[in-house]
Amino acid sequence: MSDHLARARAFIDILPHSRALGMRLDQFGDGQAVLSLPYDARLVGDPATGVLHGGAISALIDTASGAAVMAHASAPASTATLDLRIDYMRPATPGRTVTAHAHCYHVTRTVAFVRVTATDDDSGRPVATGVAAFTLTGQANVP
């Protein structure tokens, strides 16, 4: 594991809500972040089917998006969600880990734009996609 990923992982681990949900950072760098959320019965939204609650997927998507902003080359000091829109394509398969791939594809001096896709092990059919705008402060390398 690179030092870079280890530092980023330590950063995610101290976010209490992400830790409580059991999120794991798998990739971090070049404006991209990959986070996974292992299946957990406490996070079920529909007791009849065992499908995870949309809120848990939203939290994963929000965290992955924020991490992608922090992974951008402009090296911001901090960021916060301005708006987030999530489309749910299908229920996540019960028992399977959900993984979110977020890409911060453009930044200005003040705003970062992110696209994100969440999949389970059937990666050809997304569980959810999201688009988000984030605030940016204290960038070390202003574009």
Binding site: H53, S58, A59, I61, L84
Partner: peptide
Amino acid sequence: LHGGATAAFLEV
């Protein structure tokens, strides 16, 4: 608060 926690609260 975590933006994800706020999102989940609204969705619930």
